[in-house]
Nucleic acid binder design. Structure first.
Lengths: 343, 343
DNA sequence: AGTATAAATGCAATCGTATGCATCAACCAA
DNA sequence: TTGGTTGATGCATACGATTGCATTTATACT
């Protein structure tokens, strides 16, 4: 036991969890267990007399009978549970991001009467052990957030367990995520409208597919306009990295597209310290739309990734896969621009 | 299906999830299914020849056999899954708070090789339906975050399912939370050291037990020093409520203890707008210690509630209850003061 | 050689539910 | 009356793993 500071040692009045079974209800009433099961679930194609039905309903209620989910799952071959796996066990870096993903996924599961099971692993757990845990029958399907199309992605795909990659596309699995190109495009169009031409891009230090996609989209947008792309590195930990890199560029960009919200905020913070005015001296656009969760003292202009829709789409894809339907391999949810005070 | 924006309609190369069973492995080898099961799990008290053991291990590996978790759960009467239920389906208000609770709980579960299942409900789901869902055998125990000792708390207690209330104490269940009195005490002692005497308390608009406890502790601390307690209302939505209420108090307090971090930040934001300097004109202390997740441009002085330890303790309590041990009814985890730039 | 002992393995029940098929009574038409 | 149909219900198995007990085979000891 973890040693607690201050406790009072009353013995709790525990009743051992005495699950009532359908057979117990049946025996009490002198009917068969099958009848109880069928009456309670209103199985179509079977008729029961009003009298029997009423007796069973009442007795079940009285005895506090609840069908045992695990037994049902075993029998039916489905659990009505969806798993969520994210690759790095430390949610720290993407803390708020992960919180939002989990929140929206749970909401989406709720809507289809499913539950969300969190599958995380210690960093030292091997791929095959992860696979074993993920495919041991606890969940009907999997939503995963992976960094890359590595052995885990391939293993999941091979396992036959329906799985959808979220946010980051990986080749081996169907994926649903933000339409990054559109996101970058509307961000840049917005900056252009505001009169900016020297627009830099703060690039992710992580090898995330989504980050790469945004970077590529940025370059395309710039080149289409005949402007020089300026990519500056960026770190979520060292808040000054981006700022310093930015300062060394000549002529200095007047606007920066950041690959995500957190890096945008870090940049703005560095600007504040250096007395660089945002948005007058430098316009900043983020990407994610989680900013309202961050309770900033200002509103960030950002590309809203629409997590709610992405999550909904992901679980709906899973349901479709479970029904044997074929699903689109890559689904893009269009992002929207949320204009704040930083551009 | 949720209509996606842009899709490409390749049919995915799905293999149906063909679970290999222990019997299939046994039949392949001409041994009994029991032997396979025992060899693979190294059941103590049974010896098997090196040859048989090797053959089974290899064949299981080759066929990709994984024990079916649902079947094991049914047989063993335990799922190795812990449920988390939080009363309000909208995580919005306590968004960051809930994210941290879930994160730390998951970490704690990971350490004891369990999984965390998220149990949330739409607001219109009745108490009895919630109870039915929670006690249907899917989880070995429950961690709950409840607002009050209402019918749900009582129902869970009566159900016999091991459950621990987290953060908020409710009478019907064993609980583990922050030692609020100590938290308030160290916060006030800190302010006193800084020379403050007129210390106000920003009180929660929610009927949360933890909030009440903090308020009571505040009053005790003030009265012990012969000072007048000043409680001002506070809203997490309208950021100005607290500030305005504060302005109307004479003589104006020089410091404010806030019932949580979010309200502290709202207050500080209002101060900024009104050109009231923090900490010189007004010192502010928060409560929760989640502030580093908020990426504020300043460091808040706050009482760190130590979620990691609370969560660990909660799941350990559950494990103890599952072993039939009696557990302390109320466990307090001592908070620590984290000194920032607002005092 | 004969039997006690240990080593190696198999049989079969069980967990609680879902469901195909069988059964039995009642009712109705010919 | 007989045969057919419908209504109401029960029997028994399957889902896949775990485990107490029984059984066989090998080893050891007089």
């Amino acid at each position: 036991m973890h040693q607690p500071n201050d406790t009072d040692m009353n013995t709790p009045p525990y009743i051992t969890l005495s699950k009532v079974t359908s057979r117990q209800v049946a025996d009490k009433l002198g009917v068969s267990q099958a009848t109880v099961s069928r009456v309670l679930r209103n199985v179509p194609g079977y008729q029961y007399s009003q009298k029997t039905r009423k007796r069973i309903l009442e007795e079940a209620e009285r005895m506090g009978y609840r069908p045992h989910a695990v037994a049902s799952s075993l029998r039916e071959g489905r659990t009505r549970v969806i798993g969520f796996h994210n690759q790095n066990s430390e949610l720290d870096v993407h803390n708020i991001f992960m919180a939002e993903v989990i929140r929206s996924l749970q909401q989406a599961c709720l809507e289809i009467s499913h539950l969300l099971l969190l599958h995380n692993f210690a960093p030292d757990v091997s791929v095959s052990n992860r696979l074993a845990e993920l495919t041991c029958g606890r969940v009907d399907g999997l939503v995963v957030h992976l960094q890359e199309n590595g052995p885990l992605a391939k293993g999941i795909a091979q396992s036959g367990l329906p799985a959808v990659a979220i946010a980051n596309r990986v080749e081996s699995l169907p994926s649903v995520g933000c339409d990054d190109s559109t996101g970058i495009r509307i961000a840049i169009e917005h900056l252009v409208e505001r009169g900016h031409e020297r627009i830099a891009f703060a690039h992710s230090p992580y090898p995330l597919e989504a980050a790469q996609a945004r970077h590529r989209a940025y370059i395309v947008e710039m080149e289409q306009r005949g402007w020089q792309p300026v990519s500056i590195p960026c770190s979520n930990h060292d808040t000054d990295t981006t700022f310093r890199a930015l300062q060394s560029v000549t002529p200095r960009p007047t606007a920066v597209c950041c690959w995500n919200d957190v890096s945008a905020i870090c940049l703005i913070r560095a600007c504040n310290r250096a007395a660089v005015n945002v948005p007058n001296d430098l316009a900043v656009v983020g990407f994610d739309g989680l900013i309202d969760k961050l309770m900033m003292p200002f509103n960030l202009t950002t590309v809203d990734v629409q997590w709610a829709r992405i999550s909904q789409t992901a679980v709906h894809l899973l349901m479709a896969m479970l029904s044997g339907e074929s699903v689109p391999w890559a689904t893009n949810v269009p992002p929207t621009l949320r204009i704040g005070e930083t551009t």
